[in-house]
Amino acid sequence: MNVFRILGDLSHLLAILILLAKMWRSKSCAGISGKSQVLFALVFSTRYLDLFFVFISLYNLVMKVIYLLCSYITIYMIYGKLRKTYDRENDTFRLEFLLIPVIGLSFLENYDFIPTELLWTFSIYLEAVAILPQLFMISNTGEAETITTHYLFFLGLYRALYLANWIWRYHTEKFYDQIAIISGVVQTIFYCDFFYLYITKVLKGKKLSLP
């Protein structure tokens, strides 16, 4: 464990809690892509199955349980409690355009052709593209609530910090996880446009609105 990974996990946890707080306080999930949240729940469900078979550390166990719980609560809020505020018309990204290539690539590029490895690989590739429906929705509506931009910022920052973690681990313990690293780079690149808007607009107190 290193500082980049701890900060990355905390950034991820903060993002998830910001989203829940936004929905809880505003009693609305306007501007939130339910599709992205479904993909995140799928990422956690396929990656954290080892929860029941392998004990790595208390930290690892607790964080996995929190992520799984929060992701399902988030989906319950969007499609259950606050479904009247769910902006279905703007959340139109075709999930099959993400799931089919990700499933295909998981079968092609993996470390081992066994169920647990295929599921882990699927979750890594899926996480890289899971935010696309949310970014697509913002481009559809042309703007995003400020609290939503903070959610996206910490969500993007988490994997960027993981990139630093992999650089650190490579130099200190020759650790190199090619699938996770390449996927993490792609995932972070998808946020670059948003990061630019966040830093030039939101941090200056303006509202995030796309040109």
Binding site: I56, K64, Y111, W120, Y176, D177
Partner: peptide
């Protein structure tokens, strides 16, 4: 690439 080692990362 690395083999399928213990997945200690989240």
């Amino acid at each position: 690439g690395a083999e399928s080692k213990l997945k200690d990362e989240l």
